[in-house]
Nucleic acid binder design. Structure first.
Lengths: 126, 126
DNA sequence: CTTTCACTTGAACAACTATTCAACTGAATC
DNA sequence: GATTCAGTTGAATAGTTGTTCAAGTGAAAG
């Protein structure tokens, strides 16, 4: 019997109705910018740096000292984050102080950590 | 004069106070999981897929048809997202239907798109 | 104006990743 | 139970990315 339309409704790639539903829901350029933001945040070292800066501003030397890494490593890392407008930067004397760009960034970090923690607990429970 | 302590307060890598403030604010494993989530979302094709699924569930063929890509490409893409627990999956007849794992995921997408849009407008204005 | 300090940047190399083809699996139909 | 359909997976390849070294910049101190 081919009259069973229940299945067809759920998944019918050629149905115009489905085409419409799956049509690009957001502008392509917005997707690309958001993806760049996620990619920038998607490295443990960079995310750790962001989490640090969520505690307050810090200069490059401080961050390097805290993680015991090369100064240039930190600087390159911050450059990637800065390229996606995730950071603010101000000079104070000889130092350059970095901080999160805005609450959106803090929100993203918090949300992902929450999701990660939930998944972690879900796995532990079974 | 070395009595100018204004600058020292703002950035003093060897000050224990600063060390404490920059100490790992979240567990290392949580950072790593969150980074993996961001990395999974940090690819335009994958983020587009997630944005699609935010509109409702869809099967692999539907997604492939919508983006005019290979079935295996979509499948591999979904595999990456699934590995980070970003997706739910259920079988219906011959089809496998995918959807977002939870509201956290939708929230992350929405938040990043909002940030991206804001940055976009900020650039346009000046 | 020269030197120093804090940081930035270009280049290079190693490590990782996205896509595709081809082969495979497993549920549904014949 | 053989076949078909929808999706998955392993392997290969091309492209991307993170770290570091070495050289460069620019503000402040001498």
């Amino acid at each position: 019997m081919k009259a069973n339309s229940k299945e067809e409704k759920a998944c019918a790639p050629n149905d115009p109705e489905h085409r419409r539903r799956l049509a690009p829901p957001v502008e392509e350029s917005a997707i690309e910018m958001a993806a760049r933001i996620f990619r920038a945040m998607g490295d443990p070292s960079r995310l750790r740096t962001l989490a640090m800066l969520a505690q307050g501003e810090a200069c490059v030397t401080e961050i390097a000292a805290a993680t015991k890494e090369e100064l240039s490593t930190i600087s390159q890392r911050l450059r990637v984050l800065r390229a996606e407008n995730l950071l603010m930067r101000r000079r104070q004397g000889k130092h350059v102080l970095y901080s999160l760009a805005d609450q959106h960034v803090a929100g993203l970090i918090f949300n992902a950590l929450a999701h990660a923690t939930e998944q972690r607990q879900a796995k532990t429970k079974g």
